[in-house]
Design a protein around this nucleic acid. Structure first.
Ligand SMILES: NC(=O)c1ccc[n+]([C@@H]2O[C@H](COP(=O)([O-])OP(=O)(O)OC[C@H]3O[C@@H](n4cnc5c(N)ncnc54)[C@H](O)[C@@H]3O)[C@@H](O)[C@H]2O)c1
Ligand SMILES: NC(=O)c1ccc[n+]([C@@H]2O[C@H](COP(=O)([O-])OP(=O)(O)OC[C@H]3O[C@@H](n4cnc5c(N)ncnc54)[C@H](O)[C@@H]3O)[C@@H](O)[C@H]2O)c1
Lengths: 236, 236
DNA sequence: CCCACAATGTGCAAAAATTCACAATTAACC
DNA sequence: GGTTAATTGTGAATTTTTGCACATTGTGGG
């Protein structure tokens, strides 16, 4: 019933929210997702030698077409030099500015099981400016335990207080699906602005809160659908 | 250079492959992804009471529109009863048949770090018919260790042999990005049919092999782009 | 200075996906 | 048995996204 701001993309893209725009143009939703993907090879290249990159090369590295790359970038400005290409460092900087990954973000995570632990220990997040400031679990046996990243697992009841005190913006859910909605409510009641949910259910949030649902098995099902499709083609 | 079969969807959908069809119609790529998502609430409902479900209700649970649900299903047949709705059990069975999740699939995983361990220990996969038959790691300290799921970690050099002996169809990559391409080559040389890659690079596979790249940080970047977008709207 | 070449940026056309609106069908009730 | 309410299935309209072709601009060499 409660309407919500869904981000229509990613594994779980539940296409509903539409109006996205800068200045004048409407930005296609998949463009944002691709921009994020473009930044990966740029980061790698950023260290090593190459100063410029063409849309053709970048497209190859990301598995898209080159007009797609150019168009995606053109929505936000003119970042290249005709006849030359894009300056790697500059382009990366521009993309980060567009995506708002040129700033630091504050996160917390709820549910420190196998997946939660992998996420919080993964330094790629911190390296990209995503800072975990708190970790919560409901299991009394886990509460109080200190993780190698330095965080101490807090009981869920401290959630509202800590989120407000530490100005935490984004919450990650890695609890079993049964608890995911309850945790979502706790998070939104605490004033969280966005949620990344790994539990395989679609959680509901009050208006104004962003939610992105991630479900690996959807990817697997995608694979097996196409696999079966292919072997059928082989048979007939 | 090597062309490949990309599955254009999921977190990493690199829209390139297009031709999908049953009997007569062309199936939109996002439809497959949504079918997978429809099956989650159906599984839950399947146990508890409810015998039928309307497209409106299912749409609510999945965060899509109801004509979307009906159209998605209509691509594959007529599964509902007008004036009534869809029988939960039947619909779930039909969707599983469509997605090819009504059969068992054989998997292996490469890279038993934090994420790899979480994946292989997660029983949702097995419950859905995805059976991990082998786990590989290059770290000599990990090789030989037996996981709680019963698998013993194998050295990468046994890969080709085991994949062929056990008829493993799908490989999951959970190694650091630097090694992902090398591992991909090993897997495809061993005759694997599809790869689910969690390392944040776009791996290349020879023609005829499916690959789905999953990257969580893309989801996060999606979130922060929209978050910043919203706060900007608040300011002006 | 001019010419050939390379690669971007973009208007327009095509394709893909979604939404709409409603005819068709079923159940339930009186 | 007829009338009402509910809900599916679907062709057509609409919206969104991608692809194409090429004019534009910058580089470098003679
Ligand atoms: N492990 C994977 O590879 C994987 C893959 C895809 C999806 N997921 C999903 O991610 C979630 C977590 O998976 P996992 O393997 O880490 O499970 P897990 O059982 O190892 O961990 C779940 C953790 O959540 C905690 N928890 C339970 N209820 C809670 C609550 N109300 N508040 C706070 N914490 C609570 C538990 O104490 C536990 O530590 C599940 O929903 C799972 O389906 C996991
Ligand atoms: N941990 C997360 O939450 C997370 C999230 C998103 C993406 N990822 C990605 O998933 C991958 C794994 O992440 P992780 O946190 O588990 O890392 P990790 O360092 O904990 O584990 C990597 C494992 O791969 C093994 N390995 C390395 N090279 C190998 C090779 N050539 N063959 C076989 N095994 C090899 C290592 O021995 C190690 O056990 C990384 O690419 C990471 O970026 C992880």
């Amino acid at each position: 019933m409660a309407s919500q701001v869904l981000i229509p993309s990613g594994i779980s893209g539940t296409n509903q929210a539409k109006w996205l725009m800068t200045k004048t143009k409407k930005i296609p939703v998949p463009t944002i997702e691709r921009l994020a993907r473009y930044s990966r090879p740029l980061e790698d290249l950023s260290g090593s030698g190459d100063v410029v990159i063409s849309s053709v090369r970048l497209a190859e590295l990301c598995g898209v077409t080159s007009p797609q790359v150019r168009k995606d970038l053109a929505y936000f400005g003119e970042f290249g030099t005709r006849g030359v290409g894009y300056n790697v460092e500059d382009l990366l900087k521009e993309i980060k500015k567009i995506l708002a990954t040129d700033q630091e973000w504050t996160l917390c995570i709820v549910g420190i099981g196998n997946l939660g632990n992998a996420l919080v220990e993964n330094e790629n997040f911190r390296k990209r400016g995503y800072n975990f400031l708190a970790a919560f679990d409901s299991d009394p046996k886990k509460v109080g335990h200190t993780l190698s990243c330095g965080l101490t697992i807090e009981p869920s009841r401290n959630m509202a207080q800590l989120i407000q005190k530490l100005h935490i913006e984004i919450g990650i859910i890695a609890t079993p699906p049964f608890d995911a909605q309850k945790v979502t409510n706790l998070l939104t009641d605490s004033g969280i602005k966005a949620i990344l949910n790994f539990a395989p259910i679609q959680v509901r949030v009050p208006e104004g809160c962003l939610v992105e649902n991630v479900d690996f098995t959807v990817s697997l099902e995608n694979i097996v659908y196409h696999l079966r499709d292919i072997s059928k083609k082989g048979l007939f």
